[in-house]
Write a protein that binds this DNA or RNA. Structure first.
Lengths: 250, 250
DNA sequence: CCCTGAAAAATTGTATACAGTCTGTATTCA
DNA sequence: TGAATACAGACTGTATACAATTTTTCAGGG
């Protein structure tokens, strides 16, 4: 039903450039505001300028880079407020998707698939120790649930808007999951998130469009709380990809 | 305060390609689902493949084109439902922007600029005959008001999301203004829209975040009504750029 | 010492050549 | 006649050369 993976046989040079540049930026190899000369990237990544340019254009569209005057691209920085706004945008669109799912109705089999996904998260949460595997698997199922939620809207337009809103750095569903490995209260946070997942699903099942909207918005706000926890914990920040892009308050 | 125009000295080949391809598609020179071979566009537009490819990528990001399997781009079609969804997304984000403006507050001078813009629309509406000039000027001021509204949110992230949501064909503020030149009730529709503009501005001025949200959503829904009017009026459809992309209900 | 201006270097915009892939057709063999 | 294969054409992915523009450097004059 869902078309999951665009079946990439061997990754194209453009893909390599895209992943490579994103990785370089998120690792902090380039400082905020710094320019990304194409030839430097050619040397670093071993692909020619053409795919580099395509990747730069895509990353600028994502919001990770910024077209700079009069030409070229620079690394973009994000204030705490901007991250909060990005989360708010994502939450708003996700709430719209959920409301539409509740209004238009979702097939029983689709609801079962969503419930199944949540069941796996619950199975994961019964394990005592959240190790590396745990985080990776949680991200996978969490992503799947949110993708199913977007699809449940029945609107490709909405799903698309949601994907783009979530592609902004730190705005995605799993943006601050990595830091939870370093935070004492992490297991509790996962449990809260999971309870919200269940409530969201129940509201959609019950066609309660009025109820599901605030539930989803509240769920998105959990990401903002995680951001604040991360900012207070230097150890956690070290595990956060792209931490160098966050402009701390002066 | 607002950075209005990116000061384009002479348009680059990429700009020419972007505008050219968009124009070709909106004029219906390519049918829905039809592929756009790069070499054909090279011949039609007289620029080389490199800027053509950049433009195709941008237009796919906008939503006008679609990356097709296994390669290349095709013209995308839009059902009435999809257009309604796109309007809903735009309205939702615009409501978020307005709510944030009301919550965070807007400077007196900025409010004055918005009011000034509305004053010009009102001056326009006192003229009896809505001719071609009228429509062009209305679009200009209407766009300005909505841009000011986005800026009033105080969030570049939100403004950005809004811009992108409005760049989808038929989702923008002026999407169906052109058809109003052909519709008898058009002047009344302009007046309703303008009344809503005023109410939105008043709600922001009064910091009524709870009130401004539904007002903006309702205002966006006016675009949907215009769509329905246009679909019922064959003469109006002829003046609508991109009319050939709309998939009528079977 | 700083400011000005020209040359040099760096960088991006654009065109184009080449290679790999997919598609459709025709030809050959069973 | 039908199927399989090989060939031809079209198209996109990639690399790279060249042009135009911007930035930097440095020398000379105020």
């Amino acid at each position: 039903m869902a078309q999951p993976i665009p079946l990439q046989k061997d990754p194209s040079q453009t893909d390599r450039a895209l992943l490579g540049i994103r990785d370089l930026v998120l690792r902090g190899e380039f400082k905020t505001g710094e320019r990304l000369p194409e030839l430097a990237l050619v040397e670093l990544l071993g692909v020619s300028r053409t795919p580099i340019r395509a990747a730069l254009q895509k990353l600028a569209e994502e919001g990770l880079l910024e077209a700079s005057q009069p030409t070229g691209y620079t690394v973009r920085g994000f204030s705490e407020t901007e991250i909060a706004d990005a989360i708010e945008v994502r939450g708003t669109l996700e709430a719209l998707a959920a409301r539409m799912a509740a209004e238009r109705g979702v097939s029983a089999s689709f609801l079962a698939a969503m419930s199944d996904c949540l069941g796996r998260i619950e199975a994961l949460l019964t394990k005592v120790k959240p190790g590396r595997d745990f985080l990776a698997q949680y991200c996978q199922f969490n992503t799947q649930f949110h993708e199913l939620l977007a699809e449940a809207s029945g609107s490709e337009i909405v799903a698309r808007a949601l994907t783009r809103a979530g592609s902004l750095p730190f705005a995605g569903h799993n943006a601050f999951v990595s830091v939870q490995g370093e935070i004492p209260a992490s297991l509790e946070i996962f449990r809260i998130a999971q309870r919200q997942h269940r409530e969201i699903l129940e509201a959609i099942e019950a066609r309660s469009s009025a109820r599901v909207e605030p539930l989803v918005k509240e769920h998105a706000r959990l990401a903002y709380k995680n951001l604040q926890l991360a900012l207070q914990n230097n150890e956690a920040m070290k595990t956060l990809p792209g931490a160098s892009l966050i402009r701390r308050r002066p």
